[in-house]
Amino acid sequence: MKIKMLLPLVFVAIAAPALADDGMAIIKRDCVTCHNISGPAPQTLKEVWNLKGPNLAYAGNKYREAWLVSWLQKPQRIRPAGEFYGNHIKIGDKHDVVDEATLKDHMVLSKADATAVAHELMELKQHDDLIAQEKLEPGTGSKMMGEMMFDKFLGCMACHRIEPDYGGLSGPEVYTASRRLQPQFIASFIRNPQAWEPKTWMPNKHVSDANLQKLVYYFDALAAGEGNGK
């Protein structure tokens, strides 16, 4: 009887350390074929063309952990033309279009695996230095003014969608950005995309501190489901 009672305890004792290692084991087994987890970011275009997924070497500086846990269980495409976008477009009737046949769905993880993987990803913080430079004030801004700036004054919608079927396709959708990303990352990447990814196809538009703050507020408003009126 005593042995029977002890068995579950022994099992838990053996399983506990294994669970703690699971996240990195899963990442090394399943993620590294498409994701870079140790850096450096691509330094040449040939490396960019070989991209199959976002660089995760700074995942802990970039993502919100709760979002990662949720998304890994139910992944949905964030970049309409995938990554690298150039590998997933073709000539269409009126203009180039996304070649859907070339895009693959992301693997689905169980809740336990998603939690373990997300936890490990949050440890990858290659760019604490860049994040530390961002000083954002908590607050809210005018959604209408934010959209005007994003769309008309900065022209960002050329490459990004601000709602599911409006905007450009070569960059990631921004209407979910605040749910996915840490605000300091959003500000830092827009401030200097090349500091994060030297060969990224996102240009540095030299956005001012004040406008970076407004963009973060705008993305908050979009992610809160208050999309634009289009």
């Binding site: 976008y85 477009i89 000539i91 450009g168 060969k199």
Partner: peptide, 17 residues
Amino acid sequence: TYCVQCHGLKGNGNGVN
């Protein structure tokens, strides 16, 4: 890598965006 997203695979201004 950079121009095609807007100017198109043919360079005729008909990019994916």
